[in-house]
Simulated scan of single mutants.
Amino acid sequence: MPSSPASNLAFRTGSITTAFPSDLTLRAEGLHPILGSSSQATHPGIEVRVGGEDLVIPYRIHHEGNEQGCLQLSGLQSVMYSCILTRHHDGHVRQRQLRQIISVPEPWVVPFVVQLTGEYVMEILDTCEAHLQALDPELYGAFIRDNPKYFKAQQDRMISYWDCYYRHLYKHRQDYVGFRLFEHFRKLAKG
């Protein structure tokens, strides 16, 4: 298991470079000019394991720049930019960027998609469900198996939001999109 720079504050809070595998560091650094003065919330980053590497994606970013910044990027950097914007403070931005990445078959995209399934924004959950067939079963299954505590925390978060905001509308679990998403993920994890 490679060592992780856990003592580095940027690593613990999540940054552009810690959000992607080390072989993408230079491309991630190339996003700095496009993201400009984006700032991160003080919340600790989201620690996940992808392809044997420890990554930390930002919990939330505050980016007032143009979402179209990706138009000046290469294909791979454009996907990376969209991944980072799925952590945006505005749910509409998160949903639009989710549509850009959800069918991309890269293991480092998976945590950005799965993170959104634990959120309370119903439209984001509906977008995830509408694209379930586009998800690479091997990539998502491997990610869930490699991150059982993270997956459980996301599921618990989804249940908490359902209980707080949606239980009165969806009394039966099978009627709420979040439960259907996590059931699908559990099946992928089993192979």
Rank of each mutant, 00 (worst) to 15 (best):
P148W: 07
F185R: 12
I159Q: 10
Q40C: 04
T42G: 15
V121I: 09
L181I: 14
R49Q: 09
Q133R: 15
E129T: 07
N66D: 15
Y140C: 06
R60W: 09
S4R: 13
R87Y: 03
L35G: 02
A19E: 11
E29I: 00
V48Y: 05
V109G: 08
H92V: 03
S37F: 01
I124Q: 08
V113Y: 00
Y176E: 03
E119D: 14
P111C: 04
L55P: 01
P58V: 06
P2A: 07
L125M: 02
Q95R: 11
L55F: 10
S82F: 09
M122T: 01
R99T: 05
P44E: 05
S82L: 02
R167D: 09
Y59R: 07
P105A: 12
V79Q: 01
V79L: 12
R99A: 15
D90E: 14
R27G: 04
H184V: 07
V48F: 11
H62D: 14
Q40L: 14
L26T: 14
V79E: 04
Q97H: 12
G191H: 04
I84Y: 01
C70H: 13
L35D: 01
E123G: 03
T25K: 10
E64K: 12
D90R: 05
P58T: 10
K187N: 05
S37K: 10
V50Y: 01
I84C: 06
L98Q: 05
Y140A: 07
V79A: 09
K190P: 00
C164S: 15
T18F: 06
Q154P: 00
